[in-house]
């Protein structure tokens, strides 16, 4: 028993040290978001100051902040749901079947993730112009699917491979159709994996700057573009409001993390089914 305690102490020690490293910039943003303009650029930097809520109020009062949030929500919901709808079935096909060319297609999907957006930006803009999707939510969503499809396919493939095949075989013997098996057998047990890739995909879309910039103009201005446009002036950065807006825009992510946590625990109890 003594060993266990030492092990745990080391674990806590590592976690605390790493937490300091990972939280430091966010803590700094948090402090900045409560400072007035003079305090944000004070030298030496101020740790103690009289806090103000005006940065948060200014951001919340801003019409365009809400419009940009709306754009980001629409784009990420559309792109994540479509990417999951076409990605998970394909991952299942890769994990459970053998067919000609499957590895080639899988590799091709992986390579789409490797081509930097910068390289294909100009022809991609031309393609979207040709099909009249420039500056539309659908257009930006389609581009965001590119960011996440490879992750969904490959991560889900690995998750599905780890799942026991017995349940599916049993369902097949019971006469259930294949699509029905995916829906009512596979999706529930693969939930931890699905939730994880959903959260990651959402992040890829939510944080993307490049496609939103090149494919959107007036009607679609996702949050990352809006934040940098509104709070980075020609002469200086508006640190207080940028930090406040940056922190406010993480709320959807925090909600998803909380959902994820619940599902991870549920996944744990489901894992016991295998035995």
């Amino acid at each position: 028993m003594k060993y266990l305690n030492i092990n745990k102490i080391i674990c806590y020690f590592i976690l605390i040290i790493s937490s300091i490293f990972f939280i430091l910039p966010i803590l700094w943003m948090f402090l900045q978001s409560f400072k007035n303009a003079k305090d944000t650029i004070a030298i030496p930097p101020k740790i103690f100051f009289s806090p103000t809520f005006s940065n948060y109020l200014k951001v919340l009062k801003n019409d365009y902040f809400w419009e940009a949030t709306f754009d980001s929500v629409i784009v990420s919901l559309m792109s994540v749901s479509v990417a999951l709808a076409i990605g998970i079935p394909f991952a299942y096909a890769l994990a459970r079947f053998n067919f000609r060319g499957k590895n080639e297609i899988a590799h091709f999907i992986l390579s789409t993730k490797m081509l930097p957006g910068i390289v294909i930006a100009i022809p991609l803009v031309q393609t979207f112009n040709y099909i009249n999707l420039l500056d539309t939510h659908i257009g930006v969503s389609i581009a965001h699917i590119l960011l996440m499809l490879a992750v969904i396919v490959w991560v889900m493939r690995a998750f599905l491979q780890n799942l026991p095949i017995d349940l599916e075989e049993a369902a097949l013997l019971d006469g259930a159709s294949r699509l029905r098996i995916i829906w009512s057998v596979i999706l529930p047990i693969a939930r931890p994996g699905i939730v994880t890739v959903t959260a990651l995909s959402f992040l890829f879309s939510w944080n993307d700057l490049f496609f939103g910039l090149t494919l959107g103009s007036f009607d679609v201005v996702p949050l990352p573009i809006y934040l940098t446009t509104e709070y980075i002036g020609y002469l200086a950065v508006n640190w207080g409001e940028l930090s406040a807006a940056g922190l406010l825009s993480t709320f959807p992510i925090i909600i998803i993390v909380i959902l994820l946590r619940d599902n991870l625990i549920r996944g744990l109890s489901l894992g016991a089914i295998k035995g």
């Binding site: 910039l213 090149t214 573009i225 980075i232």
Partner: peptide
């Protein structure tokens, strides 16, 4: 647009 993004968007759209 902030200057850096401006200098990306204009050439990208012009070239395209």
């Amino acid at each position: 647009l902030p200057e850096n993004q401006y200098l990306t968007k204009v050439p990208a759209d012009m070239e395209a």
